[in-house]
Amino acid sequence: RNRTTFNSSQLQALERVFERTHYPDAFVREDLARRVNLTEARVQVWFQNRRAKFRR
């Protein structure tokens, strides 16, 4: 699988949700994935990586 590149509008939407919660539930992830046209799995991994970055 190739690395996913996120465009600025996708990142903006992802970061907005991250500000609200670092652990979005499945419903939030599904909705977000639909809105930014990504798979739920990509959204889930983005949050895992974003939390790791946040802890650094």
Score class of each variant (00 low, 15 high):
residue 54 F to N: 09
residue 41 A to D: 08
residue 36 V to K: 05
residue 51 R to N: 06
residue 30 E to G: 12
residue 43 V to D: 06
residue 25 D to N: 10
residue 28 V to N: 01
residue 47 F to C: 01
residue 54 F to V: 14
residue 30 E to L: 13
residue 40 E to I: 14
residue 35 R to A: 11
residue 2 N to G: 06
residue 10 Q to F: 04
residue 52 A to K: 06
residue 10 Q to L: 04
residue 3 R to Q: 10
residue 21 T to I: 05
residue 50 R to Y: 03
residue 28 V to Y: 03
residue 40 E to M: 10
residue 8 S to I: 09
residue 56 R to K: 15
residue 29 R to E: 00
residue 40 E to S: 10
residue 6 F to R: 05
residue 7 N to Y: 04
residue 19 E to G: 02
residue 21 T to H: 05
residue 24 P to S: 03
residue 5 T to R: 08
residue 36 V to G: 04
residue 37 N to C: 03
residue 32 L to I: 12
residue 6 F to K: 04
residue 13 A to I: 03
residue 53 K to N: 12
residue 44 Q to E: 13
residue 42 R to E: 15
residue 35 R to V: 08
residue 33 A to C: 14
residue 2 N to H: 08
residue 27 F to Y: 10
residue 38 L to Q: 00
residue 50 R to S: 05
residue 26 A to N: 04
residue 1 R to T: 14
residue 32 L to W: 03
residue 43 V to S: 03
residue 45 V to C: 10
residue 1 R to Q: 11
residue 15 E to H: 04
residue 34 R to K: 13
residue 26 A to L: 11
residue 18 F to D: 02
residue 29 R to W: 00
residue 43 V to K: 00
residue 12 Q to C: 09
residue 5 T to M: 08
residue 53 K to D: 15
residue 50 R to A: 14
residue 51 R to W: 06
residue 49 N to Q: 09
residue 50 R to F: 06
residue 52 A to C: 01
residue 53 K to F: 14
residue 54 F to Q: 12
residue 55 R to A: 15
residue 17 V to H: 05
residue 30 E to P: 00
residue 13 A to W: 09
residue 30 E to C: 11
residue 45 V to A: 15
residue 50 R to M: 14
residue 8 S to P: 13
residue 3 R to H: 10
residue 52 A to W: 02
residue 7 N to V: 05
residue 26 A to Q: 11
residue 51 R to M: 00
residue 7 N to Q: 04
residue 52 A to F: 05
residue 5 T to G: 12
residue 30 E to N: 13
residue 50 R to W: 03
residue 30 E to R: 09
residue 23 Y to C: 01
residue 9 S to L: 10
residue 9 S to W: 10
residue 38 L to R: 03
residue 40 E to G: 05
residue 21 T to G: 05
residue 42 R to D: 13
residue 38 L to M: 08
residue 37 N to S: 04
residue 29 R to M: 14
residue 50 R to H: 00
residue 24 P to A: 03
residue 27 F to R: 14
residue 7 N to F: 03
residue 4 T to W: 08
residue 49 N to Y: 03
residue 2 N to I: 05
residue 20 R to V: 10
residue 18 F to T: 03
residue 9 S to E: 15
residue 40 E to F: 06
residue 7 N to H: 05
residue 20 R to T: 15
residue 37 N to L: 03
residue 24 P to D: 00
residue 48 Q to W: 04
residue 2 N to T: 13
residue 46 W to G: 02
residue 9 S to H: 10
residue 18 F to H: 06
residue 17 V to G: 02
residue 25 D to E: 05
residue 45 V to Y: 14
residue 27 F to T: 14
residue 26 A to P: 12
residue 3 R to T: 15
residue 31 D to S: 11
residue 31 D to I: 01
residue 38 L to Y: 07
residue 7 N to P: 02
residue 11 L to D: 09
residue 48 Q to S: 07
residue 50 R to L: 07
residue 1 R to W: 11
residue 5 T to H: 05
residue 5 T to F: 07
residue 55 R to P: 02
residue 27 F to S: 14
residue 14 L to S: 03
residue 18 F to S: 05
residue 33 A to V: 06
residue 32 L to Q: 01
residue 55 R to S: 14
residue 56 R to H: 06
residue 17 V to K: 06
residue 38 L to N: 08
residue 4 T to C: 11
residue 40 E to P: 09
residue 1 R to D: 12
residue 53 K to Q: 14
residue 18 F to N: 00
residue 10 Q to V: 06
residue 2 N to A: 04
residue 37 N to H: 07
residue 41 A to L: 06
residue 17 V to W: 03
residue 29 R to D: 01
residue 31 D to W: 09
residue 54 F to I: 15
residue 48 Q to P: 00
residue 39 T to I: 05
residue 34 R to L: 07
residue 41 A to C: 12
residue 2 N to R: 06
residue 7 N to R: 04
residue 16 R to C: 13
residue 47 F to T: 02
residue 55 R to T: 10
residue 9 S to D: 12
residue 48 Q to K: 14
residue 7 N to I: 06
residue 10 Q to H: 07
residue 3 R to D: 07
residue 51 R to P: 02
residue 44 Q to N: 09
residue 56 R to Q: 15
residue 47 F to W: 01
residue 12 Q to F: 10
residue 17 V to L: 14
residue 8 S to H: 13
residue 15 E to W: 04
residue 12 Q to P: 01
residue 26 A to M: 09
residue 2 N to S: 10
residue 54 F to A: 11
residue 34 R to H: 08
residue 16 R to H: 13
residue 21 T to W: 08
residue 29 R to V: 15
residue 48 Q to T: 08
residue 1 R to V: 13
residue 20 R to C: 10
residue 13 A to V: 08
residue 27 F to D: 13
residue 40 E to K: 13
residue 5 T to W: 06
residue 6 F to T: 02
residue 1 R to S: 14
residue 33 A to F: 04
residue 27 F to W: 13
residue 17 V to D: 02
residue 12 Q to R: 07
residue 46 W to M: 06
residue 34 R to Y: 03
residue 32 L to H: 00
residue 12 Q to Y: 10
residue 19 E to W: 14
residue 28 V to W: 03
residue 46 W to A: 00
residue 4 T to R: 08
residue 53 K to T: 15
residue 7 N to S: 12
residue 21 T to E: 07
residue 20 R to N: 08
residue 47 F to R: 03
residue 24 P to T: 06
residue 45 V to R: 10
residue 45 V to D: 14
residue 37 N to Q: 07
residue 26 A to I: 07
residue 38 L to W: 11
residue 18 F to W: 14
residue 5 T to N: 15
residue 26 A to W: 11
residue 25 D to F: 03
residue 42 R to I: 13
residue 4 T to Y: 02
residue 11 L to S: 09
residue 11 L to V: 13
residue 36 V to S: 05
residue 13 A to M: 11
residue 39 T to C: 08
residue 31 D to Y: 07
residue 46 W to E: 00
residue 33 A to H: 00
residue 38 L to K: 01
residue 21 T to K: 00
residue 54 F to C: 09
residue 31 D to K: 06
residue 10 Q to P: 02
residue 32 L to V: 09
residue 41 A to H: 08
residue 20 R to P: 00
residue 5 T to L: 04
residue 16 R to P: 02
residue 36 V to H: 13
residue 52 A to Y: 06
residue 26 A to G: 07
residue 51 R to V: 06
residue 21 T to A: 03
residue 25 D to K: 04
residue 8 S to A: 14
residue 26 A to T: 12
residue 3 R to N: 15
residue 5 T to V: 13
residue 29 R to I: 15
residue 30 E to Y: 04
residue 10 Q to K: 02
residue 32 L to M: 05
residue 31 D to T: 10
residue 46 W to F: 04
residue 43 V to G: 03
